[in-house]
Amino acid sequence: MQRYILFRGIQALFTLWILSLAIFLSVHLTGDPAQYLLGSEAGRTEYEQLKKNLGLDRPLYIQYIDFMGDVVRADFGKSHILGRSAREVLMERFPATLQLASAAFLIALVVGIPLGIVSAVKRDTPIDMFAKFFAVLGIATPGFWIAIMLILLFGAILGWLPTFGRGGLDHFVLPSFVLGWAAMAGMVRLGRSSMLEVLDSEYVKFARVKGLSERLVIFKHALKNAIIPLLTFSGLTLAGLLNGSVAVEVVFAWPGIGRLMLQGIQTRDFPIVQATVLAAGLFYILTALLVDILYAYVNPKIRYE
């Protein structure tokens, strides 16, 4: 087990390093930050001076060593647009994203897993039909569009819910539902198929033959095994919520890092881009690592592979 954790840890570090390299190269090889900062009208001397100030006249490998030092200290420099340190802005925005992602994740878990299980147990009933329909739609509809439609319906037409910004609990309803729907759909699907498979297995049949009540068969015997695949999936889902959160944050004007990232790209604000991409990457890699370790703990087969 320890060897496994160590192995996965090194792998995670490696992925993180690749990411940081990609970011470094994206800023330093393809574009010229000094050029972006000054615009095209700047004179030659101004340009040289700025390059010197930013340390861009030094050899690339020295810049890289410097950059890595900064990354380790989480020092990404000052945002040119916001006039504040990128780390400060990141720290300010990160909780918003984390809260939204957690709320969405919770909805996905609390609604998705039971719905998937019930859908399998009550196969081919209206509940099953509804669950399948709900899941299929959740996977096929673009989140950003659903978000806009819900704003139209609940915000503009009915006026029941706030449609932008962060605030009380009511502010969470629409964004977290939109963000959580696709994840929920995946959980319903996987929960259903894994429960169906377990219900078809020999030991469940045996438990039934033995004369155990249906309730006991499902809760005591089937459920435990049906949950295992959901565990890995939910971890990946949590990490994958980052993907959807950019669009959802943009539509609902949610002050999180997804929107910050997009703004950074639109305004070519490199410190912000570096900070947000690395933070998102770190979040993703850590979650994946945690899930793998948890999974190995639950399923001993993995550890010895």
Binding site: L25, V27, G31, L242, I265
Partner: peptide, 14 residues
């Protein structure tokens, strides 16, 4: 596993 949007954003920056 890596969020696609993140990949896309890195490419756009690039």
């Amino acid at each position: 596993g890596f969020p696609t949007i993140l990949v896309a954003m890195i490419i756009v920056v690039l």
